[in-house]
Design a protein around this nucleic acid. Structure first.
Length: 921
DNA sequence: TATCCGACATAAA
DNA sequence: TTTATGTCGGATA
């Protein structure tokens, strides 16, 4: 269950008459416990309460008590040994009139009337496995409002199916946004009289709901009509009490969907919520799921958390503003300058969603401004920061609408906070009629016309091939000569997961080069921003998948940015961007800030600690702006080539488990010549056994004579034919064989393909010709002990971890990126002999610990001394070849390797080995 | 709930 | 034709 569903269930429970016997179970059920769990608790099997209540292990101890005994009961629950023994996180006591609960870890308590306990549902969300970071609790209102709006939305679509069609979606979205505005306005006295909107509808529309839409339509019309025009338009007296709002919000059609009785009741109920508690940054992200069928399941789950957004905004420009504020101290002149500067700053989010980056940036700037005004003794001063300087582009209609509203609400809330309710109301209406959030495809729109740089002598590129003429361009910016900061969290989408349209978006941005095909969709924003930045110098920072700073994409993206003289000026290294949903695995992200500033302090953030450096490389490490490019064969001539293992693409039918193999062989001993060992990463590391059918063309007939083998071959054919990939369908012609084959009948080295973050060594191993290396490993034919030594070295691992692609937070080893690029001088015969001996010693040390698996041996806890010594020796011999001694640290290692790599690539002959064509300038 | 890596679509050469 | 890379994850412990 998601947070919104839980909120609904809890509210429904509170509305039912109180049933003491049933309450604990109903409560647990509302938090998403399964029927079977409840049944077991009911039967007492898993209920360990010693107070006649219900105690769910690791969760909660609930007791229903006699009237008036709530506080006493809660204390008893806390003191109960069973509570401690079952490690309950919460205690809860109620008599149906009062309600008290405590979170035992923190000692935080809730005490309220029973009917009000749903107000505190956020308190209990850990029961549903939803981690309550502080923020989730604070957004209880937002979750509830989302839930109610969602109900209304669904109900309205039921009665007005045409409003759900693509043609009317915009009207529907616009209507919902208008409602939200009205709910907010009537609670905050923007409409004079609390509850004016809801009350008017309740009073003026028939109870049978037949004319609800007309009443609402009249109200909307009134809010779009200036006072002086109202008589001529014929606004009825009851609608005349509403102020003129306009601001694009109420202009256009006032058409309103029809309301059923249920929808009308929902509407009135929503109006009774306390909308002053809305958090525009959070609510926006939540509510946007309402309008998207495929996202509704995750309602209330999706929002970008505030601390993460600040990871972008603070280093981008807020830190600097705050530093200037501190510097200005109480100097009125300096404070004034800062305020004037801020009034001209534009924040531009070309993937703004429901506007949370913009809202948070706006709020942060207002906070700084308020401090300036306080120090200057102008606390009541009207803000100098124009809301229209917070610009956005959003593809989806509803979030774009919500974003604008969220900013309006944020402005009002800031005015109330810093200037007072009365002053806030004074200046609020009518709203500015400008539309400063553009709905459209950010990768196709011309950013220069949406956010035109002014006062910098830049000519608008309105004739840009891909630009779309927009009236937004006509809006005057109040930021003559001001700075622009671009930020956001654009959508990530891997190269193999993009739609045709998305591919085309990238294709246009790459101006005829084809390497866009391997880029994540998010790369488009970097390219687009870099083009914008070259005309006006705007710094930009985006949240992105960590793969833009790893592996093959590094060359595609950063070669282009460096060509434009742009540099990384801050970076957050890979971190997990978690939503509040516990079942959401989270995404591995980086944040990269780019500007045209070549020198000066730069910052790398890791685990929230900042490190100051002179230069940040494209792998987000300190050092030069060097990146490697995929190479088809080694740049170092002493290394043999490494290739990918054999890929089955068989739907699992050519692959045999140990049991499969035994069964097959006992039934058909003659199959033995058709079977080989299959070796992937797991088999190398954990020594597990898998086998495969390895059938040569001359054996096909013999193989098909075995029914089980024939069945498998037939199944391979079927599954390949059904594939969406053209190449795979092609392999349906050879169903008895692996799709990709490189197997040779000689011994080889198998190299694991995935490595976890903590591994201290790569663990290649030696195999005979009876083993087929699968595509989950790499292979070198024939066996080569020098290569074995180098791959096993920590020097090579450091290099690999830096330049190879990632796998989540781990490493995905790569022949072309990590191994073929690995730089090493020409080796003497003695070097080779030394390294070979080191490799042999590693193998011998492993053998001495037989039968322990590699995974076990290389666990830092277990690494035996002899094996450790063998690796140490190997590292030492190799490093001496580079610099005559051991490196001092990894920084020195990488420095040397990149330096050598650059040299080797520049040397004649090396260019021919490069895999991909140079990017034209 | 933290860890671990399998299988294959789809790219380039 | 051949052979790579990466996966806003899921299985599994």
């Amino acid at each position: 269950m998601n947070a919104v569903e839980i909120e609904e269930a809890i509210s429904a429970l509170a509305e039912r008459p109180f049933d003491g016997g049933e309450f604990p179970f109903a409560f647990l059920q509302a938090f998403g416990n399964k029927e079977t769990t409840i049944k077991k608790l009911r039967a007492g099997a898993s209920n360990s309460s010693d107070l006649g209540g219900v105690l769910q292990r690791n969760h909660i101890h609930i007791a229903v008590c006699a009237p008036g005994a709530v506080t006493k009961t809660l204390a008893a629950l806390k003191a109960s040994p069973a509570t401690a023994k079952a490690k309950a996180r919460f205690t809860l006591a109620t008599d149906g009139a009062d309600f008290e609960a405590e979170e035992l870890d923190t000692g935080e308590t809730v005490a309220c009337a029973y009917a009000d306990f749903p107000d505190h549902f956020g308190f209990f969300l850990p029961l549903a496995g939803i981690t309550t970071v502080k923020q989730v609790r604070e957004s209880s209102f937002d979750i509830r409002a989302t839930s109610r709006m969602n109900r209304l939305y669904v109900e309205l679509l039921k009665d007005n199916p045409d409003w759900g069609t693509a043609a009317r979606r915009h009207d529907m979205n616009h209507f919902m946004v208008r409602l939200i505005f009205c709910f907010f306005a009537e609670r905050t006295d923007i409409f004079h009289g609390i509850g004016l909107f809801t009350d008017t509808i309740a009073r003026m529309s028939a109870k049978d709901s037949s004319d609800t839409h007309k009443v609402i339509g009249e109200l909307f019309l009134s809010m779009n009509t200036k006072r002086e025009d109202r008589a001529s338009v014929g606004i009825p007296r009851w609608a005349d009490a509403f102020p003129y709002v306009n601001g694009e919000l109420f202009s256009g059609s006032v058409d309103t969907p029809r309301f059923s009785k249920i929808a009308r009741a929902y509407l009135l109920h929503i109006g009774s919520l306390d909308w002053t508690k809305i958090n525009p940054d959070i609510f926006g992200s939540m509510i946007q799921a309402v309008a998207e069928d495929e996202e509704r399941g995750a309602l209330g789950m999706h929002y970008t958390s505030v601390p993460n957004i600040l990871k972008v905004l603070n280093p981008l420009f807020l830190d600097d503003l705050r530093a200037r504020l501190a510097e200005a101290d109480d100097n009125p002149r300096k404070l004034l300058n800062l305020r004037n500067r801020m009034a001209k700053i534009r924040v531009f989010d070309p993937a703004c969603g429901s506007g949370n980056f913009l809202v948070i940036a706006y709020k942060a700037m207002r906070e700084i401004e308020a401090e300036i005004n306080r120090r200057r003794g102008e606390a009541d001063r009207r803000t100098d920061i124009p809301l229209t300087n917070f610009r956005g582009i959003e593809l989806r209609d509803f979030p774009a609408e919500v974003a604008r509203l969220a900013l309006i609400i944020a402005e009002f809330q800031c005015d109330v906070l810093y200037r007072g309710q009365k002053e806030a109301l004074q200046d609020f209406l009518p709203l500015d009629a400008q539309n400063w959030i553009t709905c459209g495809n950010a990768l196709r729109l011309d950013w220069l016309s949406i956010c035109p740089p002014t006062g910098t002598g830049v000519k608008l590129q309105a004739d840009d091939l891909f630009s779309t003429p927009l009236d937004q361009a006509q809006i005057d910016f109040e930021n003559q000569g001001g700075e622009t900061y671009i930020c956001g969290n654009p959508q990530f989408k891997g190269a193999r997961k993009q739609s045709r349209d998305q591919k085309n978006d990238l294709s246009l941005l790459f101006h005829g080069n084809i390497d866009y095909k391997d880029c994540d969709y998010v790369v488009g924003w970097f390219i687009k921003a870099s083009e914008y930045s070259t005309t006006c110098g705007a710094p930009f920072a985006f949240v992105a998948t960590n793969s833009i700073a790893q592996g093959e994409q590094v060359a595609h993206l950063w070669s282009r940015l460096y060509a434009k003289n742009l540099h990384i000026f801050f970076a957050h290294r890979t971190f997990l961007w978690r939503n509040n949903a516990s079942n959401n695995a989270g995404v591995h992200c980086v944040i990269v800030g780019v500007s045209n500033r070549a020198s000066g302090a730069k910052f790398i953030y890791e685990a929230d600690t900042a490190r100051e450096v002179n230069c940040i490389g494209p792998y987000l490490i300190p050092g030069d702006e060097i990146f490697v490019e995929a190479a088809d064969s080694p740049v170092s001539s002493d290394l043999p080539r490494m290739i990918s293992g054999n890929m089955a693409r068989d739907g699992g039918n050519l692959i045999l488990s140990r049991d499969d193999t035994e069964a097959l062989l006992s039934a058909h001993p003659q199959a033995v010549s058709l079977i080989k060992k299959l070796v992937g990463t797991k088999e190398i590391n954990q020594g597990s056994k898998r086998y495969c059918l390895w059938i040569t063309d001359k054996d096909v007939q013999r193989a098909k004579d075995i029914p089980e083998v024939a069945r498998r071959i037939e199944q391979v054919k079927k599954e390949r034919t059904a594939s969406t990939a053209k190449t795979t369908r092609g392999y349906a012609n050879i169903p008895h064989k692996f799709a990709q084959r490189c197997h040779r009948d000689e011994s080889c080295i198998g190299i694991p393909k995935t490595i976890t973050g903590n591994d201290a060594y790569l663990t290649p191993d030696v195999f005979g010709s009876d083993a087929v290396i699968s595509d989950l490993a790499f292979v070198i034919y024939p066996m080569d002990m020098v290569a074995f030594s180098i791959i096993s070295s920590s020097l090579h691992l450091i290099w690999s971890k830096t330049v190879a692609g990632g796998m989540r937070d781990g490493l995905r080893y790569s022949s072309q990126l990590a191994y073929h690029t690995f730089p090493i001088h020409r080796l003497t015969e003695k070097n080779k002999a030394d390294l070979s001996r080191c490799a042999e010693n590693i193998l011998l040390a492993r053998e001495a610990n037989f039968p322990a698996t590699i995974a076990y041996l290389y666990d830092p806890e277990n690494l035996p001394d002899d094996l450790r010594a063998a690796h140490e020796r190997n590292d030492e011999v190799l490093e001496r070849i580079y610099i005559g001694r051991r490196f001092r640290n990894d920084t020195e290692r990488l420095e040397k390797l990149f330096e050598l790599y650059t040299k080797m690539i520049a040397s004649p002959g090396a260019a021919a080995k490069k895999k991909k064509t140079e990017v034209s300038a």
